[in-house]
């Protein structure tokens, strides 16, 4: 399942409440699965939250049904290891957005490049959304990325902040490699000047290649 990220616009979907703090990327996808290629038909979906116990329905894909497309969770989600497999597991399981008070910085960077939206709200706002979903589990949350809003039944629409760069990547549904490659000449000129000023910026090639 190595399709590129899907462009993100508006999303209306049921949500799952996983109210735990500090859900690190080892818990999202245990290390023993990271050697797997992502090319299997269901990608990394089977590894999502694999060792976690007491999960609510919808947290993991089950019986052919995908996981809930929106995850409401506790602070510092995705802290720890830089493994992008954590994002693959969520995306491959059908999750399109995670709503939490805070996220690990590397996780958030990985998410934006794979079509997974990280919505940061205050603790009180996340709690209000969790109450709304707990009260009516079938209710649908609406997340509008261009407008930067989240709405839920019985909760006033909330605005969230997101870095413009992440927003661009998500709306376009692509990573930035092509965009940056268009500046290759500018990058090469920058490097040439820096290396002329500070020649130690380039390690001696023969010594790099072989053991002394």
């Amino acid at each position: 399942m190595t399709v590129g990220p899907q462009p993100f616009a508006a999303l209306e979907a049921p949500a799952c409440v996983l109210d735990r703090a500090n859900l690190d990327t080892d818990q999202i996808v245990p290390a023993r699965f990271l050697r797997k290629p992502r090319s299997a038909p269901d990608g990394y979906a089977p590894f999502l939250f694999r060792d976690l116990e007491g999960l609510p329905p919808g947290a993991r894909p089950a019986e052919g049904a995908p996981a809930a497309r929106i995850l409401l969770t506790g602070p510092n989600f995705g802290c720890g290891s830089s493994r992008e497999g954590a994002v693959y597991a969520l995306v491959d399981a059908g999750v399109r957005a995670v709503v939490a008070e805070s996220f690990g910085d590397i996780f958030r960077a990985n998410a934006a490049r794979n079509g997974l939206l990280c919505v940061r709200l205050s603790a009180a706002q996340v709690a209000a959304l969790m109450r709304s979903v707990t009260a009516s589990p079938q209710a649908r949350l609406r997340i509008d990325l261009p407008e930067q809003t989240v709405a839920a039944p019985g909760v006033a629409p909330m605005r969230f902040e997101i870095e413009s760069f992440s927003k661009q990547l998500l709306v376009a549904g692509q990573d930035e490699i092509g965009f940056t490659l268009a500046r290759a000449a500018e990058i090469a000129a920058f490097a040439a000047q820096a290396e002329a000023e500070r020649p130690w910026l380039v390690p001696p090639p023969e010594r790099l290649r072989t053991a002394p």
Binding site: S82, A109, R113, I177
Partner: peptide
């Protein structure tokens, strides 16, 4: 530290 997409970049 960076993830796989940034490594590719």
């Amino acid at each position: 530290g960076i993830g796989a997409s940034e490594v590719a970049h």
